[in-house]
Nucleic acid binder design. Structure first.
Lengths: 321, 321
DNA sequence: CGCGGAGCTGAGCATCTGCTCACGGAGATG
DNA sequence: CATCTCCGTGAGCAGATGCTCAGCTCCGCG
């Protein structure tokens, strides 16, 4: 705090009191103190700057708004939401999903279109999604499904649950995430049903995405979309994680792999064109994946747990290699 | 504090943080959170009401803004300024006078007319009066002088000193406070010089007054304006103090005494017509005088020491009898 | 003593804010 | 089941606010 002489300190305190506590207008205060209104404003600014006025916000336990702010600033986000960390992975996922659901509830309006990815984190969102009025919106799968994993992880199923809870509509994409060859993909994309679903997803106002890791236990491998060998190759190329099957390295660069042309889903550029891309992510294996995806500049709103948040910032600070 | 559920508390904290700390506009916040702007405003109100937001003002040691507020509210003042209390009477007078001077400095503009009373408290003001620019204003004696007391106590002298310090003008009143008879007074008031000076004083924008006591050691008695016998009579009539030689009782009623018609100075009604009447007062014998004068509804701005302040409020609370 | 820059000032304006009001939906009541 | 009342909502507006800018004084330097 800059040093103030007694007289000025008294004046600042008096004026601050009248403005902040007694809620008088600056003009009233100016008249009473024989000052011009702009002068009162400058004194109020000064009172803040010198710490004569301090605003204290009682933040609920476990909520670290500074941490969120650091994310917003570091990665140019619209918002970051950090949930408290808990040891249990499922509970952790719930906490993150709950916040994602709350965020969606506030954001959605009639005629909103929401693109949805697969993944366990996103799949947990519908359970917490309880808008208090019906919303005439559309949830569209932004990528293909993986027949070999639990239903709630598939984008179609997530879309359906979300739509049901707000009386909206689901736009399903009946296709796998990865197909055998670029040729098969192109053939599929010619199908009206597939093309239409992807077109809807690409035109979304909002995307709700998970962030996948690049380890052998990630959803992509567990679901059989990619083999452990393919995953190993990806890692050799520097892959740290993916969104919608598009892998990136720790610096956010897109990794072009043999299977890149076999992906069915929105591309990174299509994602960038969506105004609000929300990523919800939990899991202790994710920090590098999160950092890579953030650096790719895809995400506008990040929802994650505190432990990941700290680790991502640490990684970013140390260069992340 | 009203109980909030976790979710609402988080929202309030987030929004409050963005508004109070990050200084974003309500519209921006509304957009980010998917709310209407008025809703954000209501949430901010709620955040204050529930104590999620607390504004703390660092008040200089010894300054009690609550105490001042209580005065303002209790007596319908424009402002009250309480100086710290010190044991030494002269130092105490300085502290009060300093604040009176500061107040005047802010209030005065070119063409201001200030009516001045006699008294030691008012007489101490010029020593602290240091406007940082010249002001083309007029200081006019609002009452006659008392030849037998020190110069600095006389209104003419106080006017002169004040005028000198801001390069303004002094309008002297060459007459005693009390004369022998109503007849002499009327004769004096016919004098152009006297009439003019009082007319200027009556047209003042601001009055700076002391408050006199009703004890035998008060200025009026010490200066020989009133005898101890007259003072005794006044006290029997309930007098507790005076402004400009007009005595009031503890309830603020004007006391009509034999000598009331021998006063040379502004009447209580003339004072009430002055937009801003500032009273500066110190001295341990003054609480009842202050209360009486306050209740007379003459004063707009009161400047006093903390000890008097507490005693006046106590007196007022207990009925003051 | 004259000149130039730094810092402060209040007028003026575009924007933001607080408030009022009419509306609509939820829950209570007949 | 109809109707009533109450609460919460966002449109709209008057007034308050924050900011820019030209003019000013004060200070330092030539």
């Amino acid at each position: 705090m800059v040093d103030l002489d007694r007289e000025e300190h008294e004046l600042l305190a008096r004026i601050a009191r009248q403005w902040y506590v007694d809620r008088r207008t600056q003009s009233e205060i100016a008249d009473e103190f024989g000052l011009s209104r702009p002068k009162v404003q400058r004194l109020l600014d000064r009172a803040r700057a010198t710490g004569v006025v301090e605003v204290h916000i009682d933040v609920p336990l476990g909520l670290d708004l500074d941490l969120e702010k650091r994310f917003v600033d570091a990665f140019g986000l619209k918002a970051a939401i950090v949930s408290p960390s808990v040891p249990d992975a499922d509970e952790q996922r719930s906490l993150v999903a709950r916040r994602a659901a709350g965020y969606l509830e506030r954001l959605l309006v009639d005629s909103s279109v929401v693109a949805i990815s697969h993944g366990r984190d996103v799949g947990a969102v519908p359970r917490h999604f309880r808008p208090n009025t019906a919303i005439d919106c559309v949830f569209a799968s932004a990528m293909g499904g993986s027949p070999r994993v639990d239903a709630p992880t598939n984008p179609n199923e997530t879309c359906r649950s979300l739509a049901q809870r707000c009386d909206g509509r689901a736009e399903s994409l009946y296709a796998p995430v990865y197909v055998e060859s670029a040729e098969v993909r192109d053939r599929l994309l010619e199908q009206d049903a597939v093309a239409h679903a992807l077109k809807v997803a690409a035109s979304a106002d909002i995307a709700l995405l998970g962030i996948g890791g690049a380890d052998d236990s990630c959803t992509m491998v567990r679901s059989g979309c990619l083999t452990t060998a393919e995953m190993r190759t990806l890692r050799k190329q520097g892959a740290v994680g993916d969104v919608l099957g598009n892998y990136v390295d720790i610096n956010g660069a897109h990794i072009v792999a043999p299977h890149s042309s076999r992906v069915i889903g929105l591309s990174i550029d299509e994602l960038r064109a969506i105004p609000t891309v929300v990523a919800a992510v939990s899991g202790s294996e994710k920090p590098r994946a999160i950092l890579g995806v953030l650096r790719a500049g895809i995400v506008d709103v990040l929802i994650l747990d505190e432990s990941n948040a700290h680790m991502v910032l640490d990684l970013a600070r140390t260069g992340g290699n």
